[in-house]
Nucleic acid binder design. Structure first.
Lengths: 340, 340
DNA sequence: GGAGTTTTTGGGAGCGCTCTCATACTATAG
DNA sequence: CTATAGTATGAGAGCGCTCCCAAAAACTCC
């Protein structure tokens, strides 16, 4: 039988209340008593029952992490694993636990509220990348603190943590333009995903800034997978681009395959830039220039923000946007390489 | 304020007990009463408090999934995401929830028991791939039902679900031998991971069966990453193998890169077989022959096994070993291609 | 139509904890 | 050495639920 506070109390010659105080670090306990209780606690490796504690205290120190399934990239790129990693470590560090929910697309309201309002969670982090996610709706109605990973255009009055997709995409494309490329194509992400939209927007901004037209034949939509990138690239080939900005590394890898098959050399004939900086990006031939997202950091930041909101409730919304960094490798070439 | 059973009881003109019966599907409730309660329940979208339920009932319908961090492959190959997926869907289907723990290597006993014995979990699934994982130790001492993903040689008297690594590796190597290859090399996984050990063993068995010697210069250890595969392959090159069995697709991809760089053609000069069937395996050049693991299935099976043990406690240990399937693609060539 | 049987219902106890409040004990000052 | 403030401790209630048992209601059947 698991031990209870009462057992510890009996063993240390004190009361349930005192043991509870010791466990929770209440300082209204005489030093000698505390030590006596501590000894028993440690020798028996006592763990308070979280269900009971949650019930009595009204909070559980458990956070929910909701990840929408049905986003095809879940298994192909390391974004979600990294995110989970970041969230999990940050929780460990703050003495919280994580409850993971992979939200299958067919979940309806009922299931969603079951997740949120079962009293086991103090707050939720939702990694929703879809513009129209029913989960976000359900969340808005509730009274549970939450933080989004990835901004949601339809709910700007909501807390979120995001990477500056538009800005860093713009930088990536500007880099290509600075190298002298003029027919810069892009392989976008799905346009029902915020990341996909924002990265395309960054591409457009960069071209517009330099007074270049946005040609429809230089824009193809991918789905963040290698295969999607390959297909999109084959389509773009007809427009004879001299550079390609792919909205994800997996798509860039697919594009690279299509380019190689078409007998084009990267970077001599076509410059290529990806997005994400997945581990494989450094090992493609040639190594891929890409935008490094602080994915783990984003997860950790979401946790910190959420915990802060749980412990200090405030109606203020907060938006944290992290910068991303361009990792210049060989796939985009150098202006030297181009002109000499 | 969240609703309670008592609220629902008042609203439907009945008692707490009856509402509880309705929620839990106890059939000792008159049909008309049930309907009355159901209406209220649904119109208010009532969710029973799981902490309270757990406390009262002594179980929570929450399973823990423990994944050891510090295994470098967590982020590079889709094994863990797939596993999480399988576990999560199976839990959803059985009306259980998953609590995810990424166990950081520096976790000590104290943290571990905090995970296990906090009363929030009805059982745990541990995806421990390491031969000497302290978590397994801690688990053995406790009274919490658990199932391992991946057998553990040091604790055979423990429930586990695993894929038949040895057998399927043997099949893969036999396939290479059947194609007429005679200098079959292998890039193994880390030898402190069970999968790494078993796959090497399968390789050895196949060679031995065909009366071939196991040459040390044809065996190189990798770490399941692309880079590891690349390095191992460069080392193996000196021994002039005519085929390579890599213990993971990521390593096979690295090997492919090394082979290509060395001017060797796959499959004409060297046949290549991987393990895992990650999505990218179908899109390498040439497409990779590989062993497809039923990873999701394994996760689901672990859940089913665990739930069964929770609901019908038994001291019997059970070992479920799933077969894997060889996906023959072009990287291994055909005997026709070799002889004509 | 009443005894016996079965089905349905409500109330009480209690899961293990936290929190509040009253009490007991200790220290300081008058 | 008592009054006063402060500190330490224990008892009680209660969080929202399940489980058990007894009471009530609804059926049987002679």
């Amino acid at each position: 039988m698991p031990l209870t506070l009462e057992d510890i109390a009996a063993l240390s010659g004190t009361s349930r209340s005192t043991v509870s105080r010791v466990i929770n670090g209440d300082h209204a306990v005489r030093e000698t008593t505390r030590e006596r209780v501590m000894t028993v606690l440690q020798s028996l490796n006592f763990q308070p029952n979280l269900a009971a504690r949650g019930l009595a205290a009204g909070h559980t120190r458990v956070l929910g992490l909701v990840i929408p399934m049905g986003v095809s990239t879940i298994f192909t790129d390391p974004f979600f694993p990294m995110l989970i990693q970041g969230v999990s470590s940050a929780c460990n560090a703050c003495d919280y636990s994580v409850m993971l929910w992979l939200a299958e697309p067919e979940f309806e309201r009922r299931t969603i509220s079951k997740i949120f309002y079962n009293g086991l969670l103090d707050g939720v982090i939702v990694a929703s990348m879809l513009t129209d996610d029913p989960i976000i709706e359900a969340l808005g109605e509730g009274r549970l603190p939450f933080v989004l990973i990835g901004r949601n255009p339809s709910r700007e009055q909501t807390c979120y943590v995001d990477v500056d997709n538009a800005q860093s995409s713009r930088q990536a494309v500007l880099h290509l333009l600075r190298l002298g490329r003029r027919r810069v194509a892009t392989i976008t992400g799905p346009q029902n995903m915020i990341g996909g939209i924002d990265r395309l927007q960054g591409y457009q901004t960069a071209l517009r800034e330099r007074g270049l037209p946005i040609l429809p034949e230089l824009v193809a939509e991918g789905d963040f997978t290698e295969m999607g990138g390959y297909i999109a690239m084959r389509q773009l080939l007809r427009a004879r681009p001299d550079a390609v900005f792919a909205a994800s590394d997996m798509m860039a890898i697919g594009a690279l395959r299509a380019l190689t098959e078409a007998g084009l050399r990267v970077p001599q004939d076509v410059s290529l830039v990806g997005f994400d900086d997945i581990p494989a990006a450094a090992h493609t031939a040639p190594p891929l220039t890409t935008v490094r997202q602080p994915t783990q950091r984003m997860g950790a930041l979401a946790v910190e923000t959420l915990i802060d909101r749980i412990e200090n409730p405030t109606p203020e919304v907060c938006h944290l946007v992290l910068p991303a960094e361009l990792m210049v490798r060989e796939s985009c070439g150098t202006s030297l390489g181009l002109f000499h």
